[in-house]
Amino acid sequence: MSLFLLLVEDNFDLAETIVQYLELEGMTCDHTASGEAGLNLARENDYDVLLLDIMLPRLNGLEVCEALRHAGRDTPILMLTARDTLDDKLAGFTSGTDDYLVKPFDMPELIMRVKALARRKSGQARVLSALDLTMNLDSKEAFRTGRKLNLTPTGWILLETLVRAYPSVVSRNKLVQAVWGDDFPETNSLKVHLHKLRRQINGKFQAPVFHTVSNQGYVLRENDEKNP
């Protein structure tokens, strides 16, 4: 599995062992020993997974993780640390990590977790983006090209589902589940809410980005004449 990883670990012996093992598995791994450098590298590069120690110089792993999430980076993060109490793990997940591996660990388990994380984007990012759309999950504000969108609560859920799935098509059933779960009303409610959302996203802007894909669902993408 060809993956591009970043390891932020100040124990050079351990870091060397991890990097060598990852390379044997066909993965490429950058390494740095400081949190500040790790944060900069994570901002500049498109990594598949980040491996973060917690006890780091300058910025610790929790601070690095939190900064990336508030910047909207959805790269999966695996914390590597000797801290094994429940409070330590809660702190890690609160900061935005996706998984937690306590030292010492077996290398095959590390590989297994890295591969599992690489299959998905993190759900911990606090700012979501797709094309020229952004959503701030903390302030509950959505924007297109910097202009605020006045979304209903249902419109927010629908847009978040579409943004998280971008650039994939989202089926009608998935949108129904996102809003109503198993209690979908026997009305045309979804159609009405999608019409309102489309008007919000496309109506006042030069290029539409919300499209219907015939017999498949809905998608965010650049204007497509085949699927207006």
Rank of each mutant, 00 (worst) to 15 (best):
S2L: 03
L5W: 05
L6N: 08
L7R: 09
V8G: 04
E9Y: 04
L14Q: 13
T17K: 03
I18D: 03
I18V: 15
I18Y: 14
V19H: 10
V19D: 06
Q20L: 14
E23T: 12
E25R: 12
D30Q: 13
A33N: 13
S34C: 02
G35R: 05
E36V: 06
N40Y: 13
A42M: 14
N45A: 15
D46A: 14
Y47V: 09
L50K: 05
L51K: 11
L52D: 02
M55C: 02
L56G: 14
G61T: 06
L62H: 15
L62D: 03
L62C: 06
E63S: 09
V64F: 12
E66R: 15
E66Y: 09
R69T: 04
R69G: 05
A71S: 14
A71N: 10
D74F: 14
T75C: 12
I77Y: 06
L78A: 01
M79P: 15
T81Y: 05
R83Y: 07
D84N: 15
T85I: 07
T85H: 04
D87Y: 02
A91I: 00
G92A: 10
G92C: 08
F93A: 01
G96T: 07
T97M: 14
T97A: 15
D99T: 05
L101Q: 08
V102F: 09
P104W: 01
P104G: 03
F105W: 03
D106V: 00
M107A: 10
M107L: 14
P108H: 03
R113S: 01
R113P: 05
K115T: 15
A116Q: 13
L117R: 07
A118E: 06
R120A: 11
S122C: 06
G123K: 12
Q124N: 04
L128Y: 03
L128A: 01
S129E: 10
M135V: 11
N136Y: 00
K140P: 00
E141I: 00
E141H: 07
E141N: 09
R144T: 01
R144C: 02
T145I: 00
G146H: 02
K148L: 13
K148W: 09
L149C: 02
N150L: 08
N150W: 04
I157V: 11
L159R: 01
V163A: 06
R164M: 12
A165P: 02
P167S: 08
V169K: 02
V170E: 09
R172Q: 15
N173C: 06
L175K: 04
V176P: 05
V176L: 15
Q177H: 13
A178M: 05
A178K: 09
V179T: 05
T187W: 03
N188D: 15
S189K: 14
K191G: 14
V192R: 12
H193L: 03
H193A: 11
H195G: 12
K196W: 07
L197E: 06
R199P: 01
Q200W: 00
I201N: 06
N202E: 02
G203W: 04
Q206Y: 04
P208L: 02
V209L: 06
V209C: 07
S214D: 15
N215V: 00
Q216H: 11
G217I: 10
V219E: 03
V219D: 02
V219A: 11
E222W: 10
E225R: 14
K226L: 12
